[in-house]
Design a protein around this nucleic acid. Structure first.
Length: 497
RNA sequence: GGCGCAUUCGUCUAGCCAGGUUCAGGACGCCGCCCUCUCAAGGCGGUAACACGGGUUCAAAUCCCGUAUGCGCUACCA
């Protein structure tokens, strides 16, 4: 047994969002990739909250992130809510650990105190930029003599701790992009401990990844350059460097970073809009990943079996709402009527559709089934099922006009009523039988089927749009439909007076 | 500005690592046809791409170099 508790060689991966907003689609994709690698490789998934920015972090966002991940079907073995042997899992609770490591670097001469104020730094940077020079911290405080240092300390001047970037080349071995080599001279002596004693992002991340024994770091492309800093820190701290994978970023349709102005960007938005979690995860996976063949529709479980970092593409990914919608439709198709009804139920409740909700389960399921091929997302069941709660004889304007267009209306409705009254059963077979009887009757009259079926729909539902006729018959029953036709006839009479 | 990464149909991609089997395959979208009581769904078909320029080679989407474009990093944000 390894010290991590996993099989030797099994991955320990982490998803490390900062709770400064609801779970963003881009972050969700990162989480998914990590989770897929963990679950597919028999490893561990760790959730770590990077909440060192107290101003922007909140418990509300933390709840949203955890809730959204759960909704997607992503779970973790260690995290702030479930605990674990490598905790705590909130960076705000780990400041002591960071300070210890910073102290060590200080003692080893790999870091140094910097007394420059932000104002001074800003001025020097501005001057450098104006002169056309690239600005990098000028190491003024590295060269401080003893007297100067004592004077600053005596005056209680605030200080930060900067990492002393060594000379030479830094290589980030990226699983997607190969060896990325950066000259260390390009890297600033960055701040690892702020003047208030809290850890900066780079120190916190690296110390966490070391102490949490992370083996694979998978995150967005925006951290590729940062990875060079991290490699330096891993080495300075005497730790083995984990494997890296920097995936592409999620972009909006116009090619810029996916943001609010492109539409909904948080997982909870999609949840509320009635998307299926399996469709969202399927879509997120498909962006920048391919199984290598033409298959596209995968459940979460199927993804675990199929996913491999070999199939991950390095190029940018533009979010395509149309494709997501199509995938959602595909996943809706995979659901049974009963499952689909269960999923639709909360949305019916939220919309206050009490009449529908009072229906016997059987009827409700039938209603949902009848509208399912028009559904792109769960909320699409809400409007169309209203047709089943309309009162008899209530005919909308368009339908009224359509009915009046018929030159054989009375005769047609007579045929409908007759066929209906002749059938007692409301099962599928009976319903389909009635429809074929109607077709046959029309043919005998030398009419097109529309002469009879169109008035049937209009008279039974009072609407021009709705589910297939067989569903109407199954729902209200043959007698029920005949009664509704009768009611419509009375409405027509009144209208003609 | 400097550094880094990326570049196949409008979009996601297969093919690239192991160059010829590809006047580049699939999917979404869009267009058309069929089916059809309505709206859909479904079936069938069509549209559309190797960023550009040089090499290497008998042969390049595939290998090399350069250019362009996009994105990222360059904070006491993460």
């Amino acid at each position: 047994m390894s010290p991590t508790g996993n099989e030797p060689g099994s991955p320990r991966v982490r998803f490390a969002p900062s709770p400064t907003g609801n779970l963003h689609l881009g972050s969700a994709r990162t989480a998914l990739f990590n989770w897929l690698v963990a679950r597919g490789g028999g490893g561990s998934m760790i959730l770590r909250l990077e909440d060192t920015d107290k101003e922007r972090s909140s418990a509300e966002f933390e709840r949203d992130i955890i809730g959204s991940l759960h909704w997607m079907g992503i779970d973790w073995d260690e995290g702030p809510d479930v605990g674990g042997s490598h905790g705590p899992y909130r960076q705000s609770e780990r400041m002591g650990i960071y300070r210890e490591h910073a102290e060590r670097l200080l003692e080893d001469g790999k870091a140094y105190r910097c007394y420059c104020t932000q104002e001074e730094l800003g001025a020097r940077k501005e001057a450098a930029v104006k002169a056309g020079r690239a600005w990098r911290y000028d190491r003024r405080c590295l060269g401080l003599d003893e007297a100067e240092r004592e004077r600053l300390e005596a005056a209680a001047t605030p200080w930060t701790v900067r990492f002393r970037v060594p000379e030479g080349k830094v290589t980030v071995e990226d699983m997607l992009r190969g060896a990325v080599v950066v000259d260390a001279s390009e890297i600033d002596d960055f701040i690892i401990l702020r003047s208030d004693g809290s850890a900066g992002f780079h120190l916190a991340v690296v110390v966490d990844d070391i102490t949490m024994e992370i083996t694979h770091i998978m995150r967005g492309d925006d951290h590729l350059t940062n990875a060079a800093r991290h490699v330096l820190l891993f080495e300075a701290l005497g730790a083995e460097t984990p494997r890296f994978l920097h995936h592409s970023l999620l972009m909006g349709p116009d090619g810029s970073k996916l943001s609010k102005r492109h539409g909904s960007t948080s997982v909870s938005d999609y949840r509320e809009q009635g998307y299926l979690p399996e469709a969202l995860t399927n879509y997120l996976a498909l962006l920048s990943w391919s199984p290598g063949d033409d298959r596209e529709i995968f459940s979460l479980g199927e993804l675990v079996g199929e996913f491999s970092i070999r199939g991950v593409s390095a190029s940018k990914a533009i979010f395509d709402f149309d494709k997501l919608n199509w995938l959602d439709r595909q996943h809706i198709k995979r659901l049974s009527d009963s499952e689909l009804t269960d999923r639709v139920l909360p949305f019916l409740e939220r919309s206050g559709k009490s009449e529908l909700l009072e229906l016997p389960r059987e009827k409700l399921e039938l209603a949902v089934e009848s509208v399912r091929n028009g559904m792109e997302k769960l909320t699409d069941a809400v409007g169309p099922t209203d047709i089943f709660t309309r009162s008899a004889g209530d005919v909308d304007q368009k339908s009224m006009a359509e009915l009046k267009k018929s030159d054989v209306l009375d005769e047609a409705l007579e045929i409908c009523a007759g066929a209906l009254r002749a059938e007692a059963s409301a099962d599928r077979e009976a319903a389909e039988r009635i429809v074929s009887v109607l077709r046959e009757a029309a043919r005998e009259k030398g009419w097109g089927a529309k002469k009879v079926l169109w008035p049937f729909r209009l008279a039974v539902t009072g609407l021009t749009v709705g589910p297939d006729l067989a569903y109407l018959i199954m729902f209200w029953g043959p007698d029920g439909c005949a009664d509704r036709i009768e009611a419509t006839r009375r409405t027509l009479e009144v209208a003609n007076e």
